[in-house]
Design a binder for these strands. Structure first.
Ligand SMILES: [Mn+2]
Ligand SMILES: [Mn+2]
Ligand SMILES: [Mn+2]
Ligand SMILES: [Mn+2]
Lengths: 218, 218
DNA sequence: TTTAATTTTTAGACATGTCTAAAAAAATAT
DNA sequence: ATATTTTTTTAGACATGTCTAAAAATTAAA
């Protein structure tokens, strides 16, 4: 079995591999886990011995199939627990991450299967991120950044890129919630801000916001 | 905060204190946690520095009020999670303990409060053990061992003393479930076994069983 | 293509929690 | 009261996971 620390390394590498085709660098992992490169090297050697990563000195690291499976299972647990917290325990979407970071390490296949069933086999977590199935497959939906919409185009809000507590609370304040229809009324050239409409409400959002919100075009 | 290991020590001492008025011995703790006495001494020193136990060399250890509160909170979490697993995730009562051992260390007051509410503020876990409230108070009900019943007396099954998986599965097989009414039909002198009635079923149980089953006399 | 900057690895240290073996204290027996 | 047994503590070791500082390799610049 794998320790809590080993699991966190595998998960970090998994996330980094999703947005990179090369081997994952020691430094990138260190940054992701807010630890030091030297610690990463040590751990990578251990994971390599356990055959969950392929490692060649100075060349970065990649997950093996086994490693990928373990990592995606942790992500699966993380996201299922997030759904549970929101759907069953009245957490808001900005409160769930830290608790899920703990719960993702609980070891019990039955627990996860039953939780999945209790929640109605959800495919996405409260932030719009896909929940891997037991084999690690994830249902990707075609989503675009809100910033790619043209004037008078609309989309359904389906996810966030930055899911920090601050950003999520900001969205709450603005009334921006997953599932809502957003229409671009105006794109301002001078600062790339957007005038948008949600329900009957018109509001202005900065370019930074528009670059962190995913929508499904309609 | 307290590490997983520290929490397990506090919980062990808490359980041992419930059935002892003296200070808890190093050896007793070591046995409870299946570790070595020397390790216990080391840990006790640390817990003593943190003011959660009172320790005097060679004199055993007792929980301070702070220590008691922390320990009872862990027990609270353990038992609430056990209820959750049985009530919401279709676990049977012999499957919950090991998972609860992991879940009891999750840190999130909101999680526990909401879980408590979701479960309808239960007072007892699936094994009939009381769930401490937030201040550590536990609702004790007057319960007796089945073996103390006389011929023709009856009781409601309210708990088990031994809650090992094997014993619980044995009870399942016999149809003995918490909440059932049990009537003693006969006490056999030569082996202290009991002939009992549950629902319409008559069955014979050994003295060992009768000494591990709690009932509320009616 | 040599030099400089950056990244990665190694060497050595430290904290945590555990262990075995030996010493010290307490409890029990003679 | 002294000797023996049991319990508890100490001393020293080890595994895990982390760190800093220095060395080595790679990459970028001149
Ligand atoms: Mn999360
Ligand atoms: Mn999420
Ligand atoms: Mn239990
Ligand atoms: Mn229980």
């Amino acid at each position: 079995m794998f320790t809590l620390s080993e699991e966190n390394y595998l998960k970090a590498i998994y996330h980094l591999e999703l947005s990179s085709d090369k081997g994952i660098s020691t430094n990138a992992i260190a940054e992701q886990l807010t630890t030091k490169a030297s610690s990463v090297t040590d751990m990578i050697k251990k994971l390599s011995e356990k055959k969950v990563v392929v490692y060649k000195k100075y060349k970065g690291v990649t997950l093996t199939n086994t490693g990928k499976k373990i990592a995606s299972n942790i992500v699966r647990k993380h996201r299922l627990w997030e759904v549970f917290l929101v759907e069953k325990l009245n957490f808001s979407w900005d409160e769930v991450h830290d608790v899920a970071e703990q719960l993702e390490h609980i070891k019990s296949p039955k627990l996860i299967n039953q939780l999945d069933a209790l929640l109605g086999f959800p495919t996405h977590d409260p932030h719009g991120d896909p929940i891997p199935d037991e084999d690690g497959n994830l249902k990707t939906i075609e989503k675009s950044l809100l910033s790619t919409l043209q004037k008078n185009e609309s989309g359904i809000c389906v996810g966030v890129d930055d899911s920090s507590s601050e950003f999520l609370q900001f969205l709450d304040k603005k009334g921006i919630i997953l599932g809502k229809k957003i229409t671009v009324l105006e794109k301002e050239d001078f600062d790339n801000s957007f005038a948008i409409q949600i329900d009957d409400k018109k509001l202005s959002i900065s370019n930074k916001i528009a670059n962190n919100l995913y929508i499904r075009k309609i």
